[in-house]
Design a protein around this nucleic acid. Sequence first.
DNA 1: TGCCTCATAGTTTTT
DNA 2: CTATGAGGCA
Length: 714
Amino acid sequence: MIDFDNELNEAQREAVTTTEGPVLVIAGAGSGKTRTIVYRLAHLVNQGVDPAQILLLTFTRKASQEMLARAESILGRSLHTASGGTFHSFSYATLRMNSADIGFDNGFTLMDRADSENICKDVRDEMGLGKGDRSYPKKATLLDMITKSRNKELPIDAIMEREAYHLSPYLEDMLKISDGYAQFKREHALVDYDDLLFLLDKLLATNEPLRNQLQARYRYIMVDEYQDTNLVQARIVKHLAGTRGNVMAVGDDAQSIYAFRGANVANILEFPKIFEGTKIVRLEKNYRSVQPILDLTNEILKGATTKFDKHLYSDLKSDTLPQVVHPLSDQTQARLVVDQILELGRRYMLHDVAVLFRAGYQSFPLEVALTRIGIDYQKFGGIRFHEAAHVKDVLSYIRLVLNPHDLLAWQRAMEHIKGVGPKTVAKIYRAMHSGLENDKKYMAKMLKKHEPLQELLAELNRLRSTVQKPSAVLEAVLAFYQPILIEKYPDDYPKRQAGLEQLSQIAVGYTEMEQFIGDLSLDGDPEDEKRKENAVVLSTVHSAKGLEWSAVIIIDLVEDRFPSRKAMQRAEDLEEERRLMYVACTRAKRELKLFVPGSVYNRASGMSDPTLPSPFVLELPDSVFERLNESYGGGLEQRRRAYEPPAPVLARNEDEGPSPEPAAPKADPSKLGFCKHKIFGRGKIIAQLESNKFRVNFPGFGLKVIIGDYLELL
DNA sequence: TGCCTCATAGTTTTT
DNA sequence: CTATGAGGCA
């Protein structure tokens, strides 16, 4: 039997044992949210609920697998019949079983981001839009607008007006491309990530028998990270739960970090309105972090404009404060972080130490440094396994077996044939599907001209005609692809080959090809599956959500990086960055180190640019952290004086008012750029204080006030 | 039409 | 520095 009294606090116990009716759990960071879900799973099964009646929707597949596994170990029995996964994977599975009902009589294919972008490009070319316009929105931008509009369920012009005003000259074009994109998908039986959710919503809204069937099956629904659901996901939950549904939503409004994807914090706040009689449970006591870390994270939340009714507290004591470290540059930052990792490695297992950053590329210098010194690491976020070119090549054959109308897959599969490009592929595609006499002749001609095309079609026919297990199909495809792989990637094909072998290993666990393909695109990253022992973790903050480590290092805490430059324009975006910072810091259990490099490499100029510390660090009161500086010898020393805060930089030019006199000969006040100083070297001018006095940030030296005569403008 | 070269712009986050 | 896309040549 499970000892709920000892394992859970009162609030947790209430959430666990309230199994009937809607429950909303507002769970602060580290308050035992996962524990609550795990014990609730166990409790339900203990009460005699059939695991098959449980649906657990989480944000990543990994999260749901972990929770189910933990519940299994508590119960000592298997829960493999319980349904768990992401909204997207659940949608995919449900839609696949009902594909005819949503207008795909012959099934459909799930696309990834790159596929979607390429369609945008094709549609644009097809319509002949923006020819010769170098500043025309890129395919990634086009798709961004389209999916944002869908996820927020607002028209494109509204999105544009609110967050991409500079694109408004292209509004008309974008509307056309958006329509063309939708049409292309329909014609080729393709479905993107957003479609999964919208199609399921529509299916549930219109197909009453199915809805009833699912409502009857899933008597207990749990949704994790509810603050990051968007409107359509909320509707899906509503459909599944029915009117008297037993649904538990768990989330933390202070940790909402997916607004860019349409996540709507209002969902969690309105949950009690949608589900009448909702019982609200608040988990406020923190069991993860030592109090000094919580003192710091509470400060971060204090600066938020949307006030959160939260003040985390903990019984865990510590006499060491979180650290703010100022390396001279991002290069030395990498070295100092490696030193820190080695040092932390004496106290913790390396996989219990994480380095977090805002964007995937920010870890590159660190990855180099770690590799050089021989420390193993595991990276989360950034490029994914299924996005690698060779994997997509292989999958294209399989996609063609499943869906011969998948034009994107045809393009990929024929790419390597010499003399065949996108136009020819389109022609061949049309010819293959029309069956007209002329087209047959054209096909015959092409087959004669391109021998590899013959081989490809023969191989596909062979695969189509025999029903085989995914692993067998994959084996055949890999054999066929082998020569192409070697030809296409002569430099590194052994490495890619190894990746493909990994792919076929995963396939062994599947009986259905569609499921295999779907899982792969819906976050089935095999690298993630095997959690490396004793490898330090590198992760984007987004991918770190819901995880925890004994020691956490956050790097690149400077303006334009964290917060991201793109988020500096709108107050709303900056708020999300703040919550992101909050999420990052609350991952730490015992030690937290914030790195603020004095300069960062700028690949546009090929030089190091001086930085401004992140506002999230600047606003922290001195009492909640200890400050360390990199000394010129390369070590760290405690800084005695408080850091001199720079002048507000919001209105860099206008701030100081018009200059009373003509500019000093060497300093042009209209241009606050870079300068050089005899002693301090290169620096960035942040503000003009008087006609001939400037505030300058010198990498490694901090902010100085300098007379213009001593500066050489660059 | 395909393929190569050169210019240019621009760096989030994820299912 | 790298990805994207325009433009030229075969």
